[in-house]
Design a protein around this nucleic acid. Structure first.
Lengths: 343, 343
DNA sequence: ACAATTACTGTAAACGTTTACGGTATGAGT
DNA sequence: ACTCATACCGTAAACGTTTACAGTAATTGT
């Protein structure tokens, strides 16, 4: 006679008892170790389903010393590109039957970062994926100590101690600048770039490109910020106030570019007629706004997919860049120096 | 003499041994049960930190029969409002020291939904938060059977069997329509609304409002879809092809509205001059595009926050609506019937 | 001085799995 | 008929924590 299950879930033992088997056999049958076949396995699986059996992950994790989950730690900056990365991670994780644990941690907030890392380690996840996060030195050490696998996406961090999959920020900065120079721009601004992290390499690329084209670098044309919409507004506002006007602006993110474009237009300037704007990232949004935004498009989805793959690969993954490409859209046009003549 | 820890983590037992205490005391000291104070607690915590102790969540979860995590199950529709909800959830969960497990499940895909529910239950999460998901009947039954707490956000589902926190879709539909009628519109379209789920109540509200204003309802002005940018494009394209042109369109999401606006402008129509467009949701994006989009703004962030609160409250939470408000922006203007006279 | 309370601590069981190891049939090979 | 391999299965330990219960020491009240 069956008792009413009293809200407690069926366990392996229950199944074993009903079938006159041992828990070992049931466990092996359910997890398809190959040690049992045909008859038994089928029977076990049937009754398991019938009894509404649900595996207790905690117990399994405990004895195995690891869970089948991945931790994703995000900086809480309000950009929009990370959703593509997460999507890639999710998809890739699902294929491997891994759950995804999302954790937020400020970019500079050591406390929050420690908290995130700790919960990831506590949960004995298979690996940690850092997304666009500048991880503090001491925490990298922690990760190394406990021997946790970890990879950084969209941000080069740790000085080689962590594998990173990113786009080449230096090269992106260089090529974006060259793109504009090729189209006749010389006074080119850079907006919304944070003060720290590998993303600042975009400035180096930008600077080098100017130099290679014999254009003087001016500090006043680089506007720092946090990749936010507001930063774009602020930068453009500044630009239009100053005497020597820029003819093109590169935003650190799509949102920065949107802010810049809006600000320019609100002040009566035509984009791209009077000022060109382009952006880093190239998320869906660049095709949804008018003018559509010329962008340095990064392979975010792929970044997520490959991140998981690399993290789980047996051999230690190495850092590498994913290709990017510049896609020309409506927000950029010819500049005043198009044919060598300063108009 | 200390052995090199050999990559295996320190456990309670290790701390206990070193201190000449029992694991019970150590456990109680670390989790601040109040059973120990001053001296001991401080000592235990110190050596725990010193030894790099990290709690094994699996073991704790196992013995306690539950984890301190929440599961969030998302439909994988490509809208953008859910990030606000998740943000609210995250914040609210962090305050309670709960981790957040994000799971994706198709809206119609029974398989994926079952998978998500199963992992949530397997992990013995404290509760499940459904975001904008039309959960299949059979899975609601599953959730009830295992006695798992569950709440639905941004979608009324389960016919009262699940508590839901949503905006009043009917009322939103009604008021959006009235908003446009008040401004002189009579031929009003509705775009991107899915075929199923509580979101269809917007159509009912829309319809009732038309009726209350003695405006005939025309099926041909309701365009179904999946709340996507593309749906907005398609709807507007259709609208402009037909003989009797609409003067206003309501998009099921901000992205739908963006699509509609772009399509209208691409075909040479001024927004809001020749056609007004407004949207449901009112995410950040409505202020970032030009024209800014008049929207029925929902309290998504709050939805996340309150969702967690309700889920964790001792007494069974009941369904309720969160207030919304219509914010007028640039994308809507006066319609042809503004002063009663069909222009 | 004794009882009663308080403050702290230890013992040991329990949570539900997985898995190394050993055991028993069954069948094949010689 | 004997050995050996194969296929299947059970026993029991282990994972690291929490917690009910009981026990001891210190403190208080009378």
């Amino acid at each position: 006679m069956e008792v009413m299950a009293e809200a407690s879930r069926a366990t392996l033992k229950d199944i074993a008892q009903r079938l006159g088997l041992s828990t070992a056999t049931v466990s092996r049958s359910l997890s398809d170790t190959g040690e049992h076949r045909g008859q038994t396995v089928r029977l076990v699986k049937e009754t398991a389903k019938e009894m509404g059996y649900i595996r207790n992950t905690a117990a399994a994790d405990l004895v195995q010393g690891k869970s089948h989950a991945l931790a994703v730690i995000l900086s809480n900056t309000k950009t929009n590109f990370d959703s593509s990365i997460i999507e890639g991670i999710e998809q890739s994780a699902a294929e491997r039957n891994l759950d995804v644990l999302i954790l937020h941690a400020g970019n500079a907030d050591l406390q929050a970062q420690r908290r995130a890392i700790t919960t990831a380690v506590e949960r004995a996840v298979r690996g940690i994926i850092l997304v666009s996060l500048e991880l503090q030195e001491s925490l990298i050490a922690t990760i190394e100590q406990v021997g946790m696998d970890c990879i950084s996406l969209s941000s080069f961090v740790g000085g080689g101690r962590l594998p990173c999959i990113t786009s080449d920020d230096y090269q992106m900065g260089y090529e974006a600048t060259q793109f504009l120079i090729d189209r006749g721009h010389r006074r080119i601004g850079l907006a919304g770039i944070p003060q720290h992290g590998s993303i600042t390499l975009r400035i180096s690329g930008y600077r080098q490109c100017l130099e290679d084209n014999s254009i003087p670098y001016k500090e006043s044309l680089v506007f720092h910020g946090g990749c936010l919409y507001q930063d774009g507004i602020a930068a453009m506002k500044h630009c239009l106030k100053s005497k020597e006007r820029i003819s093109a602006l590169i935003g650190a993110s799509d949102l920065v570019a949107m802010g810049a474009i809006n600000q320019a237009r609100d002040q009566g300037l035509d984009v791209p007629g009077e000022v060109s704007v382009m952006s880093f990232d190239g998320t869906d949004i660049v095709d949804m706004v008018r003018p559509t935004i010329t962008s340095v498009t990064q392979a975010f989805h792929r970044m997520g997919v490959e991140g998981v793959k690399a993290l789980l690969s047996a051999d230690k993954p190495s850092s590498r860049f994913l290709p990017f490409r510049i896609i020309s859209r409506q927000s950029t046009g010819p500049g005043p120096y198009l044919h060598g003549d300063p108009k």
